[in-house]
Design a protein around this nucleic acid. Structure first.
Length: 564
DNA sequence: GTAGGGTTAG
């Protein structure tokens, strides 16, 4: 930049023909706008000194603004200005850049208008513009539009295929992503590491472990796994599919690990409930002098929250501030969750109502969970009001509020709420848990009775409830068990999917019981607490893998051979 | 006269 400023001064002070002057300045604009060492504001001021900036300078500025990390719509505003003045005329570069900008900020409406410019200005057949459109629609999760553009492309290269696959990956359409992956190879185009990152991440989103494993084998066969991003995608995929050991295996074999790789691993430990592993990994990361960023801190904070490690969590919070990271709404959410899970609900409420940024729904839900745990009806109702104001149609919220009422034996309020749900046609998505016994995966969907041994499980769970109650523990829900009417049974102890899975494990195996919980809903917020009690009563180790995504295979049972 | 589209962690 220092040299560039000198050159700029030189250009301004020498007599130069107008065309050379404009050309030189346009090169300065390009450098300042596009180089990682550049300065977009300086580019803008130089741009203003060009008498009639041509399309090249406009394009540099448009692209430059979408490269900075602020998620601004400035490139779109610039394009608008450009089309309003009518000079210079946009070219295929302009359209590709502005579509990229629309993709980054998922500006669907604006992107649609750019698409109409594409057609009007006759750039519909440009490969770059077409690919940009596919990418844009994919980023906006408008797969139908992406597919339509893609299908009309006469020539599709690797970039176009990858854009298409990553669009499907984003929405977790793993079968379609795999189909495209196969078609692409049939069309004679070989995938590269980027393509594989897309298909692997499709498996992560969908929880498709079987396909993920197959892809891992494919990668080992045809690639040398040295690609940082691809390894990271595999770590993320294994962690999200419930195979934390495999995630760790891929991770430790990575020769180079960047912030994203470490964050993926730590996050994986966090949602597997392995708080200590997450903290250890974080320490190692600092020792190897990789700088943690806002996502890394989110990972350790959520690990502390899940592990009930309040003082550790507070220390990480201070460390985050020392690193100069401005806490986002998600960070605040983690801190509130951390406090609530340890019963410090009042402090959490104070933070929520005094933080600089408006709290999100997840934060209110953490508070609501805390209120239920501490049996705080009044505060709980205040929190519920904020929550429903923010998300009036989310079934999860209603179920949580209903559970708060049921834990406090507020039956009238509870059935009132159920009535509102019915009126608004709000239907909850059932949670699901699974356990593997002798190589067979048994899946339990809440409210589903299709498991062949369901009758026996029912009886056993009655006994479990009795033992929990007789031992003097009073988990709020077990009181409810014998009182509720059929319609409200989903709140009862015996009806939670993870308890079906635990019961199955207690009955069928002597090994430690490892269950995987897919929480579409946080109906079982006291899950960990109840599990501790059952674990103690039956003297069995029970490990919960929390919030792990799984491919839906067959309801009931499925052989492990098919699974792999 | 200058430049271009696809990948990863919540």
């Amino acid at each position: 930049m220092r040299v560039l400023r000198q050159l700029h001064a030189h250009i301004l002070t020498r007599p130069l023909p107008l065309s050379s002057f404009a050309f030189a300045l346009s090169k300065i604009v390009a450098f300042c706008a596009l180089s990682p060492f550049g300065n977009i504001n300086y580019a803008r001021s130089v741009f203003a000194q060009i008498p009639h900036p041509n399309i090249f300078s406009w394009n540099s500025l448009i692209k430059g603004y979408s490269q900075i990390h602020t998620l601004s719509k400035e490139p779109i505003f610039l394009f608008k200005k450009l089309t309003e003045t009518g000079y210079p005329v946009p070219n295929s570069f302009t359209l590709a850049f502005v579509l990229k900008a629309c993709a980054i900020v998922t500006a669907f409406g604006e992107g649609l208008q750019v698409h109409s410019h594409v057609l009007k200005d006759g750039f519909g057949s440009s490969l770059f513009v077409q690919t940009s459109l596919v990418n844009f629609y994919g980023k906006c999760e408008e797969i139908g539009f992406a597919r339509k553009v893609f299908e009309e492309m006469p020539v599709r290269n690797l970039v176009a295929w990858t854009a298409m696959i990553s669009g499907h990956a984003r929405v977790g359409a793993v079968d379609e992503a795999m189909e495209l992956f196969r078609e692409m190879q049939k069309a004679g185009i070989q995938p590269d590491a980027m393509t594989l990152v897309s298909v692997v991440s499709a498996c992560a989103v969908a929880g498709a472990l079987d396909i993920g494993c197959w892809l891992h084998a494919y990668i080992e066969k045809y690639f040398v796994l040295t690609d940082l991003e691809l390894s990271t995608a595999l770590v993320d995929m294994y962690a999200k599919c419930g195979c934390i050991e495999r995630a760790k295996q891929v991770f430790v074999h990575m020769p180079v690990k960047d912030t994203t790789a470490w964050s993926s691993m730590i996050m994986g430990f966090a949602y597997h409930g392995l708080a200590q592993d997450a903290i250890d990994a974080f320490q190692q990361m600092l020792e190897t002098e990789v700088t943690p960023d806002h996502v890394t801190f989110l990972a350790v904070l959520s690990a502390c929250a899940h592990g009930g490690l309040v003082s550790r969590g507070r220390r990480f919070w201070s460390l985050m501030l020392e690193f100069g990271i401005e806490p986002s709404v998600e960070h605040y959410g983690c801190k509130v969750d951390l406090l609530c899970r340890s019963g410090l609900v009042e402090e959490a409420y104070r933070i929520t109502t005094t933080m600089k940024i408006p709290p999100n729904a997840a934060t209110w839900r953490s508070l609501l969970m805390g209120c239920k745990k501490k049996k705080l009806l009044n505060l709980g109702e205040i929190v519920a009001r904020y929550l429903l104001e923010l998300e009036p149609l989310n079934a999860e919220n209603f179920i949580m509020i209903s559970n708060l009422y049921s834990s406090l034996s507020q039956w009238e309020k509870m059935s009132e709420l159920r009535k509102v749900m019915k009126e608004k046609c709000i239907k909850p998505v059932p949670g699901c848990s699974s356990i593997e016994v002798d190589g067979v995966v048994h899946e339990f969907v809440m409210g589903d009775q299709s498991h062949p041994e369901v009758k026996m499980l029912r009886e056993f769970m009655e006994e479990m409830s009795m033992r929990v109650r007789d031992s003097g523990y009073r988990p709020s829900i077990s009181d409810v068990l014998h009182k509720v009417v059929d319609e409200e049974k989903e709140c009862a102890l015996s009806e939670h999917s993870e308890r079906f899975a635990i019961a199955y494990g207690l009955l069928k195996t002597r090994a430690p019981i490892v269950i995987r919980v897919v929480k579409n809903l946080r109906v079982c917020v006291d899950c960990h607490e109840v599990i501790k009690i059952i674990s103690k009563l039956y003297e069995r180790e029970i490990i919960v893998r929390d919030r792990v995504r799984f491919h839906k295979f067959i309801k009931g049972t499925c052989s492990c051979k098919d699974f792999w």
